[in-house]
């Protein structure tokens, strides 16, 4: 059987170790990386069917930045990505997001949390500040809270690659 390849990128090595075993047990072939940079290199190398990506690694938004790089890379951009986060996400409507966007641009508002748009995954996206402090909107395939990874991660993987 042709095993589906999953790339796990998270700087928490214990978490990666445990998830590798668990996902391996589910029949996936697991590759791991512990930073955004390493993750991107691995992704180019192994061309996984799915990437599970932590947000906060070497920098607060390393995961989002890697996600962006993958999306801009010709042979990788079709790969679905599940973002994992331990930080608080706050669901808002797109109008509210626009408002925050304007506030951040004018410097009136410092975003502490990642704003998540939409409740269904079809139009999930986040608003975050990139490393230059510029607000950036990133459309996501999936966004799962780490604390619920037991209930959330596996169903999401099944949903995206079967």
């Amino acid at each position: 059987m042709n095993e589906k390849k999953v790339l796990l990128v998270d700087d928490d090595k214990d978490f990666v170790a445990a998830q590798s075993v668990l996902l391996g047990h589910e029949g996936y072939q697991i590759f791991t990386a512990h930073s955004g940079e390493e993750g991107f290199k691995k992704a180019k190398e192994v061309k996984p069917d799915l990437i599970v990506l932590d947000v906060n690694m070497e920098t607060q938004n390393a995961g989002f930045n890697m996600n962006r790089k993958v999306r801009n890379e010709g042979d990788l951009k079709h790969i679905p990505i599940i973002m994992l986060t331990g930080i608080e996400t706050y669901p808002v409507t797109s109008q509210t997001l626009e408002m925050y966007n304007a506030m951040m641009a004018s410097g009136d508002f410092d975003l502490q949390e990642v704003l998540k748009v939409g409740n269904n995954n079809s139009n999930t996206g986040v608003q975050f500040k990139d490393d230059n402090g510029k607000p950036f909107y990133l459309s996501l395939d999936s966004f799962v809270s780490k604390a619920n990874s037991e209930t959330g991660l596996l169903p999401e993987i099944h949903r995206l690659i079967g």
Partner: peptide, 27 residues
């Protein structure tokens, strides 16, 4: 409180994953 609970939550998630590995007797 928010920061502390958040850190605890992250740690717990990892503990949970590790325990699940043992509980499922995969290894």
């Amino acid at each position: 409180v928010q920061r502390v609970t958040h850190d605890i939550k992250g740690g717990l998630a990892v503990t949970h994953s590790c325990l699940t590995v043992v509980e499922k007797q995969i290894l």
